[in-house]
Each structure stands twice: as structure tokens, then as C-alpha cells.
Write a protein that binds this DNA or RNA. Structure first.
Lengths: 217, 217
DNA sequence: CGTTGTGAAGGAGTTCACAGCA
DNA sequence: TGCTGTGAACTCCTTCACAACG
């Protein structure tokens, strides 16, 4: 209930994994999980799990473990997943189209409210249950649906311009799939996921013949 | 030229960014870049850039900067990007199809040699210039093309089985897009990229009204 | 008795600040 | 003079080990 603590970045990056393990446990009818159970499900060790969860407060019971329902609620709350969040996807190429049809968004409370593209050929077509709108309507769409999240799936050359437009429109969080660094003001959060970067990192460890498994984005 | 050094994980994860900045500089006709130039292009600071590059050896010239061509070769070499690597994609759903058509792979020396799926309806169809093959042919495909990399784009429930089959077939590096932790032996490298995890992390920092921008996978 | 919660120790990564070299 | 390369300080994260407690 209290929120005085500052949660370390590394811990924040792992909370989604715990959440997923909790959801799976819940679906399987499990009522409590020990730090060791959570560790095995997430590929971590139990000390790390306990330390991470201790930053959220005291939710475990000694000798028993963590209550699945209670911890699920707590982590969801900390991550800000209690209300649905409106998301727009910019760029309806291969990746943008795939993301538009991805069910994982809705399942976690992220509601895709619009797809936008600059290509007149694409505007008006239907993709993943949405009619593609013109990127020029961005401000309007953002205001209309109170959009806070955007997914950038445009070519690298246009990504910074798109980001600037999104920020101007009032979007506060960007998930960037363009293989380029985006410069954003402090109050805007941006994460970049680059597939070829991932493969290159993989390549390094592969040629080493061994490497740290795992890795969240 | 020497390779006695152990390169820190954090540095490895940033090398692709430098490589990208170098390629862009090269295309723009720039011959040298200072650590400060590289820092600005990658959204880092110059001390970090210099420290990172110092792990590769001594490639800079004091008072001048780094030779673009030379450093490009060096980083490519360290990442093991000198030869083309054969990649298979397992799972031809929305995401798998998008990845099959993604040009970023080829551009970095990763050659998609086959798409595989378990669904008989999909086997035989053409996606991104490849005829989809049956996942039962996995061993054969891997042997045929000397495949070392695989992209897993199947539902979470099947991901571990697919990973096991890939490892059995001799694949050494996995890029997993299924939202689940995969257990792999030490000599196999696995990275997981989960879109909804990314959004959840984003959500945390968004509600904070501020956060660390950037983030490679 | 089993499992959490946590100080303390240890390790990794970042930043500082400047000597050293072109 | 300008920029690299790097020891040293610092901050952040992980692991250990055990007291506290249901």
C-alpha cells in the first residue's frame, strides 16, 4: 500500500516476468508461490526474487510464500496496469501490421485505438480490425482517445520526426522499433527494441560458444 | 588485432549502436568520429564510449578521434559479423511473417534460409519469398544450411518444445519472441524479446512522469 | 521447520579527472 | 591544443548468510 520506496531499474525490468509467472500460477489454480518457485519460473535465483519483491513492501508470509492474487494486484499496481491505456501504432508496414494484430497488448491492458501511416495507399485500408488513418490526424486521434503510449514502426529515417510529432501531440511513452536512437525530453519515456541489435548481441555470445542466457528488453 | 580481453556484457550490448553510427557516418562520407560524436549519435556520454572501445584495443588517435572504416571492421569482427549466418524462423503467424520480410536481417549478414511452421494449412504457402516448410523437417533444414541462429515466433505454450528441438538439431543461438522464459543449456545462447514486457516497463516510467530513456534489448 | 526479509559483502558498470600522445 | 586511454572513486546490482517469524 505504501509507495515511499524507489524501485531500482533492474527490479522494474523483472517485474513483468514475475507478473507472468503469477498469472500462469493463478490459471493453474495455485494459491501461493515461494521465492524459489518464482525464481524457477523466471529463470532467476530466489535471493534476487526476494530482494526485488522487498522493494514493493512486505507481501510474503514466512514459511509459506507469496499469495498469488495479492502479489499480482500489487505488481500490477506498481507497473500502473490498473486502467486500460490507449496505444497508437505509427507505421503499418510488416512489423506495424503484425503488432496491430498482436493479442498480447490487449491482454495486459493496452488498447490499440488507432493505426496511422503516411502512405496514402495505406490510409483507408483495414489492418487488424482497424481502418488505417492518416498520420496528419495524429493530434486529433491522441486527443480523442487520451493516448499516452505510441509504438513507432516506421523506417529509421522518419522515426525522429514521428517521435517529435507524437511528443508534441502529448504522448508520454514511446516504444520504438526503428533501428535508431531517438532523442526525447526528460519527461517522455522511450524504449528502443531493435531486432538486428538483438541478433548482433546473440552473435557475439554464440561465437564465444557460451553466454548469459535470458535478457529482457 | 589482439583478443586477450574479456568484454563486459554492458559493452557488448552497446557495440551494435556504435556500429550503426559508424555505418551512417560512412554513408555520409565522414572519415573519423570522436568519442563525443559517437556519444551524441548513440545517446550516451563520451566517457562511456571511450571506455567501451578501449576494451577492443587501441583504435583511436589522440587529438583526432576514431577512423570510421577501421573501427567498423573491428566491431564487426568482435561481434562475429564477418561471415553470413544462416537463420531459420519458426512460427509463421503475424510476427513470424513480419520478421520473414524484415530487411534488417540481411543487411547485417543474417540470411533467413527457411520458415517453418507446424500448421499444415501454412506449410507450402509462400511468405516473404520463402515457401513455408514443415517443422518436422527441422533437423534436415539445419543440416542443409548449417544453421546457427533461430528466431522463435510461436505461441508461449510451444516455445520450450521448439527450443528443445532447435537445440537438438544443433542451433546455437535463439532469439525468442514468445512471452515465456526458456531454459537452455549453457553452451546455447538465448535472448528473449517480449513486447508486452516492454510496454509494462514503459508503463512504470510513464506513470512516474519521467524515466531513463534508451534501452537496448 | 520452511521461507521471508535484509544487513553486509562482493562484483559490475559508470563517471570522473587527468596524464599522455598526435 | 584536442582528444584518447585509463586508474580511481563512485554508484548500482547481485549474492551471501542468517536472524526473524508464521
Amino acid at each position: 500500500m505504501d509507495e515511499g520506496r524507489r524501485i531500482p531499474q533492474a527490479t522494474v525490468a523483472r517485474l513483468p516476468r514475475y507478473l507472468q509467472a503469477l498469472v500462469e500460477a493463478s490459471e493453474a489454480g495455485t494459491l501461493t508461490l515461494s521465492s524459489d518457485d518464482l525464481a524457477r519460473a523466471s529463470g532467476l535465483n530466489s535471493a534476487k526474487v526476494r530482494k526485488d519483491l522487498s522493494f514493493l513492501g512486505t507481501y510474503g508470509t514466512r514459511g509459506v510464500g507469496y499469495n498469488v492474487a495479492e502479489l499480482t494486484t500489487e505488481i500490477s499496481g506498481v507497473l500502473g496496469l490498473t486502467d486500460d491505456r490507449a496505444v497508437v501504432i505509427i507505421g503499418v508496414g510488416n512489423l506495424g501490421s503484425a503488432l496491430a494484430s498482436y493479442e498480447g497488448f490487449d491482454r495486459r491492458g493496452f488498447k490499440v485505438v488507432a493505426l496511422l501511416d503516411a502512405d496514402p495507399e495505406k490510409v483507408g485500408t483495414e489492418v487488424g480490425g482497424h481502418v488505417v488513418r492518416d498520420v496528419a490526424e495524429l493530434d486529433q486521434v491522441v486527443a480523442e482517445h487520451d493516448v499516452t503510449f505510441a509504438v513507432i514502426a516506421v523506417p529509421a529515417a522518419n522515426a525522429q520526426d514521428v517521435a517529435d510529432a507524437l511528443i508534441h501531440a502529448g504522448v508520454a511513452a514511446l516504444l520504438n522499433f526503428a533501428p535508431t536512437h531517438l532523442t526525447v525530453p526528460d519527461q517522455v519515456t522511450c524504449r528502443t527494441v531493435d531486432l538486428s541489435t538483438e541478433l548482433q548481441i546473440l552473435s557475439f555470445y554464440e561465437q564465444l560458444g557460451d553466454g548469459p542466457s535470458a535478457a529482457v528488453g
